[in-house]
Nucleic acid binder design. Sequence first.
DNA 1: GCTATCCTTGCAAGCGATTGCACGGGAGAT
DNA 2: ATCTCCCGTGCAATCGCTTGCAAGGATAGC
Lengths: 364, 364
Amino acid sequence: MRHSSSKRQKDANVRGTTTSESDLLNGRIAKSVTIYDVSRAAGVSYSTVSRVLNGFEHVKDSTRSRVLRVAEELGYVANQKARSLAGGKSRVIGLLVPVLDNGYISEIARGVDEALARSGYDLMLYTTHRVKSTEMMYAKAIASGLSEGLLLLVPKVPAHYLELLRAQNFPHVLIDQQDEANRSATVETTNRQGAHDATRHLLSLGHRRIAFVSGSPELSPARERLDGYRKALGEAGIAFEPELVAEGDFQTEGGRSAALELLSLRKPPSAIFAANDLSAFGVMDAVRSVGLAIPDDISVVGFDDIPQASITYPKLTTVRQPLTEMGRVAVTLLLEQLHSPGSELESVVLKTELVNRESCGAID
Amino acid sequence: MRHSSSKRQKDANVRGTTTSESDLLNGRIAKSVTIYDVSRAAGVSYSTVSRVLNGFEHVKDSTRSRVLRVAEELGYVANQKARSLAGGKSRVIGLLVPVLDNGYISEIARGVDEALARSGYDLMLYTTHRVKSTEMMYAKAIASGLSEGLLLLVPKVPAHYLELLRAQNFPHVLIDQQDEANRSATVETTNRQGAHDATRHLLSLGHRRIAFVSGSPELSPARERLDGYRKALGEAGIAFEPELVAEGDFQTEGGRSAALELLSLRKPPSAIFAANDLSAFGVMDAVRSVGLAIPDDISVVGFDDIPQASITYPKLTTVRQPLTEMGRVAVTLLLEQLHSPGSELESVVLKTELVNRESCGAID
DNA sequence: GCTATCCTTGCAAGCGATTGCACGGGAGAT
DNA sequence: ATCTCCCGTGCAATCGCTTGCAAGGATAGC
């Protein structure tokens, strides 16, 4: 029953000869310094080292500081794999995104990254590449077991997958997505209100025929924005005209073709509100391609306020979503779950805000 | 000496009662399925399971398929932590970037992500947040030991850090950055040639006073682009005028102020070549802010061809770097190092290409 | 001065996997 | 028919770390 210790002993010796003390002190870390190395150098047991490193309480101060000093000297860095395998924490959280190609996602990711860095967590980035394969996501994110928690910035998370996360009690937060079942923490924005604001802005400028380029209707934010648009119209006593709503897909190309469609109506709109900035860019391009000017002939409004929105010409008037803030808040929510497992699930709704730039003009 | 096996035995039994066979078959994966679970269910030893899972050769076909089937049925997914701890591969590679806020980086990251996904690797994203702390990077990327290799998309990698990587023989690839010592694999583009092409394009349009908004001079691509600009000028018999070079920083703001400076010269340029697209956007904005038109009064050329370049108005003429391709190639290079450790370090130089859009006009 | 209690610390077990070594059995060689 | 040799498989050890349990020492209460 005590062969284990002798095994360790031998092991330590072997390593001790391979990596000489001087090598270590030289900073020429040949293999890697383990807690055993530290424990030997500090003259304590490895469990004591572990306790010190994990901020355990019952350790004599002198011991603690000695261990800390030695660890520092040897250039010890914890092996996260081993640490988490043994039941400790990996300090890694995963971010699941569809793709990496647009400002919307990278801005949120930036917020996530910042907040994570501040809390000493590392970021594992999982991309679904727009493939909705439950198996893949399951396997990658949870079972491979590298991350302690998961941030889901995926348009439409398969219900089955969410169930899995809940069943396993795996900490997670949905970003910019409703949770019908209300059993997951979420971070959303005031989509309806934002769309309402944008539409009212256009109305206040004198526009009466305001078109809407929608997002993919199966996504809740897309539906909410359409709602906001209709509500504002209704309040202004303007009848909703289905022909003024063209279906887009939150992408530039979809915005372009939707706009082309709207522009070719026998009674074209004087303003186009796009469900997000990306499609607004397509709208702008389409407007110009038929020889119209922005904002003189047509006003355009977007949604999101991704960085590109302020470098277009004219600069895009849009509804700002606090993207990086959303990322940061999501991290906060996730960390709360991690730190106090039993606690109530929180959800946060962030405010949108109309950013008035140059793409809208008054009508007279 | 044989207590170990009995320990395993007991362990397996305990688990067997906790997670019943039916539970597993129901897909209600309570804890997590290990190779022990699979081995018991398949009636083989755990090492055989491991061999099958790792595609080892000497396993009877019938055994192999049985194990595979059982693993599938139980929903087994390898625990990467354990796997890599035990000496196996983690199938994770790290990408080190300064920040996440611009198209240049995310396009490359996209290429990296795609290539990685295709090869079944996961991506760990490390952000330096523009802080050049060797310690941090070292600790995060290598010592925490999660990644098998590292992709460095960092403007200026501290020499000390590179040394560390080499000393440890840690697989890595530098993206868009020269390696003076030539001891690391790199992926670069024809910066000099690209700048040369852009300048010649402007010359062919009749421009004689061509200004250059440089990038941060401590970065090799920035220097090379300046070189290409000067070379083209020289070949056209035009004297290099220092006042026509304004220092930028690869950011939009820097581009704006540099352009303002150039535009206020007593003999302002008729064309401005910016060291990258981001600064070109600043240039465009500055040009407009002084009441000039693009391309009628001033021609503008950028470098990179990030996605935003084609949504500006007018659309930006620029030197295209195959960004996603760079990411993909970097992955290829890294994977080669991973798979054949001893082999020669490769470096790749990708071709740039002038993309002629709308921001340049002829001079008459 | 002696026992009860808490503080410190060490040992062993275990996380889930890989892998060197060894062993039994069938195929090919003589 | 006997001897190699290779094939297929199992056992034990190990990766680096966390943590329950237990023991020794110091401190405090009586």
